[in-house]
Nucleic acid binder design. Structure first.
Lengths: 218, 218
DNA sequence: AACACTTTGTTTAATTCTTGACAAACAAGA
DNA sequence: TCTTGTTTGTCAAGAATTAAACAAAGTGTT
């Protein structure tokens, strides 16, 4: 009941709130008002109050919100108070970048294994992990029980590998494949990331900039 | 007038339509109905018809939509019929991965230069480009006039470098910095990508999966 | 302690987005 | 050519989202 009542639009904003509050905390902020936060984030104060109200009353009239407490609360909603073991499939450019670049710990995950099908990269060290062969995947999953996986593999293998991982007990996919993963299982979470779509959005925004297009008379 | 009338929600869906139509075309589809496309994309047929109608009547009753024609039209809306010169700042893990992984041509851009502040990586070859020193940035921009830039640099430098690039004529930023770039210039487009937020969203989704949480009685 | 000021939580209103419904238009086969 | 079936474009109803408004509660200063 607690979670189901929070609308999707609110959920989509929560990671950003969490991030901003983290920055504020790092900068020594102890309290913040909805008005000031709205200013910083480019939202309305009304929306912020309404959002935070979805999961309890954390503010205090005349004072505002306690940054640390509020951040912790949002973190709990987002499930960041647990650490889910995660593996990476595909140690190509993108896989390596994610393994090195992402702060898994602060996002509720821990990267415990990296796998690749290419024998040439098996054995490479990335961060503190060395790349294993996909042949070891089943044995590894049986032993270490990862619950989440990052997919940085070719488009054509996404569905097959996802199904395999599900059979090994994986429940969440962070999918960077050029393919929209849609799992029939309703107990499996998927986050499809399409960097190409993001760049396309930038193209649209750029094309609308004044002076860019000839037919921008209207 | 043409563009301003398209709502934001529709725009956000356009890149995905474009991608799906590309896949369909590659698979030999010549025509498709809103009903069938809705099925494939997990949307309602009504929404698809309404979306496509925002920018003209491309369908035909009793027939559906011509895949190639529709895709081309959406591409035009998205500005994919031009090729905007783009540079990359930061040749670390993530920068390299993007340079290698993204199909710039089909997203309306062309990557023409890569820059890094670290002398150790200057001279490295990535794809067909070699990494240049940031010292050459101004001269390069004066000569080649890039209009867009990817930022894969440390958080603290994002704002400063963005301002510098704007003064060199850059009008669009694809920002992977852990920082929400907000440009006062209204003639500058920004697409902030926060992979960490995306992973956080997955954490939330996973935490809501049945059997995962103890307190999921309700 | 009293007063002026700030800020929340909540209600209500406005706006935006999505879905359902259906007539008009076309396709395809007899 | 006529008839049946399909599918669009569009309108209108229904949801969902966002913004505005305000009383109640607390702060901080004198």
């Amino acid at each position: 009941m607690s979670k189901n009542s929070i609308s999707n639009s609110v959920i989509r904003r929560l990671p950003r709130y969490h991030r901003f509050l983290g920055d504020l905390e790092a900068n020594g902020y102890v309290r913040i008002s909805s008005r000031e936060l709205a200013e910083k984030m480019g939202l309305t104060a009304s929306q912020i109050r309404q959002d935070f109200n979805c999961f309890g009353e954390f503010g205090q009239q005349g004072y505002g919100y306690n940054v640390k407490e509020l951040r912790g609360e949002i973190g709990k909603i987002l499930g960041l108070d647990v650490s889910t073991p995660m593996i990476l499939l595909g140690a190509g450019n993108l896989g390596r970048a994610l393994a090195a670049h992402i702060d898994f710990r602060n996002r509720g995950f821990e990267l415990i294994g990296i796998f690749d099908a290419n024998p040439a990269v098996v054995g490479d060290t990335i961060g503190e992990l060395s790349v294993r062969s996909v042949d070891e995947l089943e044995a590894f999953c049986t032993q270490h029980r990862p619950e989440a996986a990052i997919l940085c593999i070719p488009k054509g293998e996404a569905e097959k590998e996802a199904d395999r991982l599900i059979s090994y007990g994986v429940r969440a996919f962070w999918n960077f494949t050029h393919y929209d993963l849609r799992i029939s299982h309703k107990d499996v979470a998927v986050e499809n990331v399409h960097l190409g779509d993001s760049l396309t959005t930038l193209s649209y925004a750029l094309s609308g900039i004044s002076g860019k297009d000839k037919e921008d008379k209207e």
